[in-house]
Design a binder for these strands. Sequence first.
DNA 1: TTGACGTTCTAACGGTCGTTAGGTAGGTTC
DNA 2: GAACCTACCTAACGACCGTTAGAACGTCAA
Lengths: 207, 207
Amino acid sequence: MPLVVPTAASDTASDTAADSARSRILDEAAILFLRRGYEGTSLRHLAEVVGMKAGSLYYHFSSKDELLTTILERGIEVMHEAFDRAEHEHGDADPSVRVGAHIRAHLSALYENGPYTAAHVVTFRTAPETVRAALVPTRDAYEARWTTLLRDLQSTGSVATDVDVNVARLALFGAMNSSVEWFDPERGGLDRFADAITRQFWHGASA
Amino acid sequence: MPLVVPTAASDTASDTAADSARSRILDEAAILFLRRGYEGTSLRHLAEVVGMKAGSLYYHFSSKDELLTTILERGIEVMHEAFDRAEHEHGDADPSVRVGAHIRAHLSALYENGPYTAAHVVTFRTAPETVRAALVPTRDAYEARWTTLLRDLQSTGSVATDVDVNVARLALFGAMNSSVEWFDPERGGLDRFADAITRQFWHGASA
DNA sequence: TTGACGTTCTAACGGTCGTTAGGTAGGTTC
DNA sequence: GAACCTACCTAACGACCGTTAGAACGTCAA
């Protein structure tokens, strides 16, 4: 007894049948992986949240690893898309607002586009090595975009010459990504938070 | 057949018998928790690394949770001790070197005093709620010491007035703690790394 | 009305998990 | 040398894990 509502005819092509169940599974799995970790999340628990039995998940995914891989890949895609938008909208702005736009975009990926990026940053480290290896290229590409951005700003004199661009990037990533442990997107204030991070990254704490 | 070497008489009091096994277990468990996470580490695997059978671990610990709690508590203690030393040695230095000393101390806790602090910062988030709750006071106390430090520096004019001390602290924690994902203490360079983080935190990236 | 298809359920598989009860070998103490 | 303690092992418990084969059910086309 599939509880699927007819949804007023299928949209463009072959859609909204198992696809909605699939994305529902992905959403809830990402939330659980984010909260309890990959090993700490059982498929029976996930199935219960989604409203089916554990075995039924295998109609949509061939293994737990594939489920994780899909989520982690989507997580980086969201980051790339956010970077794209910032680049498109503020690519030729002043250095500080340009950096601010990219910081805002990264935080947007973490909090405003589903749980995938947040799940990625907290789950990647303990993911099975085969899963991790498959993600390395896309991750490296994202890091490279940031490195290029910062190097450009350094070569044009906006970033201080004695700044180690790699350390600066990793520190910034650490600051932004670790906020998933305490920042509450429900309470809002993402713009203000992004401004504070940008200010801290750009000017530092000293008077 | 206990493989315990006589160790030339017991030292001061009742020592070096099961105590060395206990600390051996703690060390290896912290390393495993750090790498694979709490749920991802089985007691059978831990026992194998230590050189005993899984059941034997229960002679030293009453449960896996207690093992984790002990490790996480030790992790904060190490942070506090590092903060103490920095405060004692550079408490009356100039603001920037004072902050630098505390940053160096926190990184020392992460990399130079056993795997406990590193295990703490990566494992706490997914630890069982009962375990987490027991650690909150000591964690809060450590955070409060940093908040007090930064507030003092702000009230004396060393930290800019428009800096949100809480965001600055959390960003700094994120930058330092996330380095466990890529910094290799074997390769050394902790002093240089601490300087780079301090420079980034204090002056920012802008020219 | 029938048959095919899509989606989920039932029921179980072998394996691993944390944990425990009871045994055992060596060291120390009298 | 007998009793005892310490530190570990053996063997198993029930629970849960990811995963699979096959059955059941609703929907839709013919």
